[in-house]
């Protein structure tokens, strides 16, 4: 810490460029979005004066409410599935794998290709003439291709659980890896069997990774556009698709802005409640 304390101006100088960029590219646009959401579209421009009409429309219309609900439900399902599937995987690498590094590389390689194409690959796999259907037909297990695989919330959940797997595996692995092995030995020494030891020591100590993973997956998937657009069909449409339509096709920017802000607020509130309850649970357990 050279010259710590005295030269805090030097520290602020180092922080300033990033703050300026973030101010220009994040704070200003978000402020503008708030202002826009308080106006009304009138032809190519905005009508004079301020109004809360957009928020009334966003919260009042049942189809919008359904879309919000579905987005949150799909995201919650994705989060749950992804974390639940990733936990044993991360546990295996942290505690049982011989070549940890090779496993970690092997687990991350699938994510080094285009997100669009990873999502699209599921369309190929689940589609009417796709991999699963053509394989099943070939094996004479079915006569007609299955139409239920694609264009529904299920397809969205599967695809997103695949696309975001790395974001669950890595944080959980890191928190498992950090656990002092002597704690586990102490638990065994004090009479815990493997299952009790897992429930009383390993799981609680790895919760920071689980919670981190959950937030890291829930927040962006709620606003995902590509996956519902490619594999969701009408039953799997999510809020981002509606927002995009307001901006690009309908041209109602104030409504699009209000939808964006409300969805951000919903995500923030849910993530906040989740964190708070996780913290409370951790406190109660202590």
């Amino acid at each position: 810490m050279p010259n710590k304390g005295q030269s805090s101006s030097e520290g602020y100088g180092l922080l300033a460029p990033t703050l300026v960029v973030m101010g220009v590219a994040l704070a200003a646009p978000l402020l503008l979005m708030v202002l826009t959401s308080l106006q009304a579209q009138s032809g190519p421009g905005f009508a004079a004066g301020w109004t809360l009409d957009q928020y009334g429309a966003v919260l009042g219309r049942a189809s919008y409410r359904l879309l919000f609900l579905r987005s949150v439900a799909i995201s919650a399902a994705v989060t749950l599935v992804t974390v639940a599937l990733a936990y044993p995987m991360a546990y295996f690498v942290a505690f049982h794998a011989k070549h940890k590094f090779i496993w970690l590389v092997a687990l991350t390689i699938p994510f080094w290709t285009s997100y669009l194409l990873r999502v699209f690959a599921w369309k190929i796999i689940l589609g009417y003439g796709g991999v699963i259907n053509s394989a099943l037909m070939r094996l004479h297990l079915i006569d007609q291709p299955l139409g239920v695989l694609l264009y529904n919330p299920f397809a969205v959940v599967v695809t997103l659980a695949h696309a975001w797997a790395a974001f669950a595996i890595l944080p959980i692995y890191v928190s498992l890896e950090k656990i002092d092995r002597s704690l586990l030995e102490a638990a065994s020494d004090l009479g815990d069997g493997p299952l009790r030891r897992f429930l009383r020591i390993t799981l609680p100590l790895s919760m920071p990774g689980v919670i981190g993973a959950a937030i890291l997956i829930f927040v962006p998937t709620t606003g995902d556009y590509v996956t519902p657009a490619l594999v969701g069909g009408t039953q799997g449409t999510m809020i981002a698709n509606l927002i995009e339509v307001q901006f690009n096709s309908v041209g109602n920017w104030p409504l699009g802005a209000a939808l964006s802000l409300v969805s951000m607020a919903i995500v923030a509130v849910i993530a906040g409640l989740f964190l708070a309850s996780a913290r409370a649970a951790a406190k109660a357990a202590r």
Binding site: T18, L19, M22, A25, L26, A27, P29, L30, L32, M33, T36, I215, L216, V219, P220, T222, G223, D224, Y225, A240, I243, E244, F247, W253, G256, A257, S260, S263, M264, V267, A268, A271
Partner: peptide, 19 residues
């Protein structure tokens, strides 16, 4: 503040900059 974009959907980041 700098980490905020992690908690904002990409579509909102893109659209607000567009505006």
């Amino acid at each position: 503040f700098i980490s905020l974009p992690l908690f904002i959907p990409d579509i909102v980041l893109g659209l607000s900059l567009l505006m």
